[in-house]
Design a protein around this nucleic acid. Sequence first.
DNA 1: CTACTATGTCATCAAGTGATGACATCAATC
DNA 2: GATTGATGTCATCACTTGATGACATAGTAG
Lengths: 189, 189
Amino acid sequence: MTEAVRRSRDSGATRQALIAAARELFEEKGYGGATVRAIGERAGVDPALIARYFDNKEGLYLATLSDESDQATVKYAGLDPEEIVDRLFHRWDERGRTPVARAMASAELDDEVLEQIRALVRLRLRGPLAEGLEKAGAGSRSDLIGEVLIGAVLGICVTRANGALPVLSEAEADEVAALVRKIAGSMIG
Amino acid sequence: MTEAVRRSRDSGATRQALIAAARELFEEKGYGGATVRAIGERAGVDPALIARYFDNKEGLYLATLSDESDQATVKYAGLDPEEIVDRLFHRWDERGRTPVARAMASAELDDEVLEQIRALVRLRLRGPLAEGLEKAGAGSRSDLIGEVLIGAVLGICVTRANGALPVLSEAEADEVAALVRKIAGSMIG
DNA sequence: CTACTATGTCATCAAGTGATGACATCAATC
DNA sequence: GATTGATGTCATCACTTGATGACATAGTAG
């Protein structure tokens, strides 16, 4: 029987605690800024267990990406491009930088990370986006247009979060969202 | 007499060599990834001189930002918004990430860095952009719209450079530029 | 020539990093 | 309850980093 017993020593729970703590700290400090000691402390777990369960720090990082990918229950399929872009903006804007968004905004990407990012984007974002764009008559390069929109939203959210563009940072989310929708709309005609 | 003698020991030349090497390495590796030893080596200069001339690594980083600001001879004043955005895109796209662009895309910004970025953006980018937008009849929030455009271009250039969005990365610059112009145009009507 | 300052060189420190392996302890199985 | 594998703890290593200060040398002024 596989009972859902709450064991005092539960490797699964430890794994999840580490992933959750890692996601938080990677969001806050970035990959380099988050130390394995800090992650272990926040998870209430000995840092050495990172090596046991994820080989090393990078393995844990990849695990956070997979985890986010799994939890991306938001379905964009079948929506208007403007609606997709609107929701994407709100998601990235509210939740701060998810590991995925943060990775996408970073300068150079490790090969494995790049692979995960691309798969996630293709399935969850660009796919539905391109589909909606075609349906709306965006013409041939709907894949490219979809990615341009994703990149644009990412840049807006990043600069909005870090304060580099003060007016944008202080604007109401809805006002910015309206502009983002406008951008999406302009790609269709 | 202040002659332009080429001295074998020239603190000015040393400073410039350090700034140039630092800019390159900050572009390639980011702030954390560029070590003072690597900067010194590329500059052909002992790393200890960083401390002498710029106090510490962060001082050198700020110096690279000022330097880029000084060298930003590109004048956007008086141009159409679409034209400004087009040139901004090409600049960031060709030259790779300048220190400024890289800083704008980073997650959290140090106070001093933030200050420099904001000043640079206000003077060189958002100012002319907002002016052009108003002239074109963009309505009230031209400051906000200008910053949204800057953020969008930044995100497009960053994702284009790091390969997170493959179609965008492989597209011709001119094709992307056309879409960027389209986005700018949509903000006016 | 001498002395003095600017500039450059070098060795080294203290702190922090990720990783590792020996050891301890829990919990399931017989 | 003894055995055994899974899980957790701890000390420590090897390495890198930014920074510092003592020292060396060039170039100039007197």
